[in-house]
Simulated scan of single mutants.
Amino acid sequence: LSGDDTSQSGDIGCCGSILMFLSFILVLVTFPISLFFCIKVVQEYERAVIFRVGRLLSGGSKGPGIFFVLPCIEGYTKVDLRTVSFDVPPQEILTSDSVTVSVDAVVYYRVCNPTISVANVENAHHATRLLAQTTLRNILGTKSMSEILTDRESISKAMQSMLDEATIHWGIKVERVEIKDVRLPKQLQRAMAAEAEASREARAKVLAAEGEHNASKALKEAADIIHTSPAALQLRYLQTLNQIASEKNSTIVFPLPVDFLSSFMK
């Protein structure tokens, strides 16, 4: 339905005008009982798309509030403008690196143009749900398994853009798409767990080797300092004795260095 068709939809022709006149006569004859059938109310979050003799009324949808419907020649369809969310059923997808994964998502959308959503598509909600399933399969089929696991945000944005571009002609606005869950085969999960464990062990060994290397450098520097100053070795003996003396439940035999007695022998 284009803009020109909407503006000209109020032209009902000669026969339509006659039927409209007779409908007014019927309302007047049956007044005030006819008010119960002619006056309609839609809520704040609803709009009414009115058809007169099969043609859309000019001016777009009606509401919220009270509107008037002529008997016999006019009919209307209520459209809910609130945001709707639905779960995309799990889809079995073959990724670009030949891995089968099961992915499901959740889509949030709303009706942005009630007139188009009624006139251009038979069931806008059902069409949007089916399109979301096929779009999810098409997008994830071009991704690798690692991209699906790590780049969920970019995949969600790409899916939202594609859905919004297609559903705008149905009067639907896709507000948000989220990848809900990614299920991997059991064998692949065990393989990935083994790979992660091996990678952690390799990193631990590398860190331990780096620690030993740094410790050996520090010990060499300490040995060079003690070698240049013999008194430093005596202080290190006393410091070690102080550390051992903190444990009072043991007997300590500490060798007295000969260098320490040399001064008394003189």
Rank of each mutant, 00 (worst) to 15 (best):
R200V: 04
S229R: 13
G60D: 04
E201S: 09
G65Q: 13
L56C: 13
V88E: 00
N123D: 15
T240E: 10
L131C: 06
L130G: 07
P255N: 01
L28T: 08
T77D: 02
Q160C: 12
R152A: 15
K173S: 08
N138W: 00
A204M: 05
L241E: 08
R183N: 03
T83R: 06
V177P: 08
E175W: 03
T100V: 06
F36T: 01
Q43K: 15
E178T: 12
K266V: 11
R82K: 14
A245P: 00
F254T: 03
V103W: 01
A132C: 10
L130Q: 10
C38Y: 00
V121G: 09
T251W: 11
P64L: 05
R55Y: 06
A48P: 09
T95G: 05
D5C: 01
I93Q: 01
A48I: 07
L26V: 11
A132M: 11
T142V: 02
D11M: 02
R203D: 11
I73Q: 01
L219G: 03
E221I: 14
I33A: 08
L26Y: 10
F67P: 07
E210K: 10
A193Q: 09
Y76V: 06
E221S: 12
A232P: 07
K40Y: 07
S102E: 09
F254N: 07
V42P: 02
D87E: 14
I179T: 09
K157N: 10
I50Y: 01
F68N: 00
